[in-house]
Amino acid sequence: MENFRILEIKESVFGDNNKMADSLRKDLKSKGVFLLNVMSSPGSGKTSTIVKTIEYLKDLNIGVMEADIDSAVDAETVSKTGAKVIQLHTGGMCHLDAEMTKQGLEGLGTDNLDLVILENVGNLVCPAEFDTGSSKNIMILSVPEGDDKPLKYPLMFSICDILLINKIDAIENFDFDFKAVEERAKNINPNIKIIPISAKKNENIDKFADWIKDEIKKWKENK
């Protein structure tokens, strides 16, 4: 073993990504582009929520980045709103990291944009581990998924600023305890804001849009 040397690295595995994310956040701040990272399981209603929310944000210039393993289905849906859209393919990866987000933003082109919504890959595990450089993180939990998700995926609930509970119009059909979710989520993340919504019935989407406007305002004031 004499010919061997041991070099200490002692670096978090996520260290490089975190550094890249911080530099991207700084860069976006200087350009005045607010990046909103939207995460959830597949099928919880990310795309339909985004489409409905854009209707309430007509005074903003919005870009949307759709991240999926394959297909352009979501990008086609969102492009009908008039927002600038780019479809990103992760090539099998289950999440976006800061580098991929940066490339996506370059592809989208952020000139004159106020808000970029990043629809992350549908997954409650990995997207929580990789900081994308977003200004705020949101997650959507839909009623059919069940009220036990904060117990099963605590990391995701711990990094989100807001939790939208979608498909609230279907609550009668499921054993979904809204109070229990609230308690479980707040237990992990006392600051998390919870809004029950229905993208289909257009319930409370205005409240979510107001939250976005408020957050952008606060973010702009906070130099």
Binding site: F4, I6, L7, S12, V13
Partner: peptide, 11 residues
């Protein structure tokens, strides 16, 4: 909760 690259052994 750690997940670290502790060290590398190089030749």
């Amino acid at each position: 909760k750690e997940f670290l690259i502790k060290e590398i052994i190089a030749c």
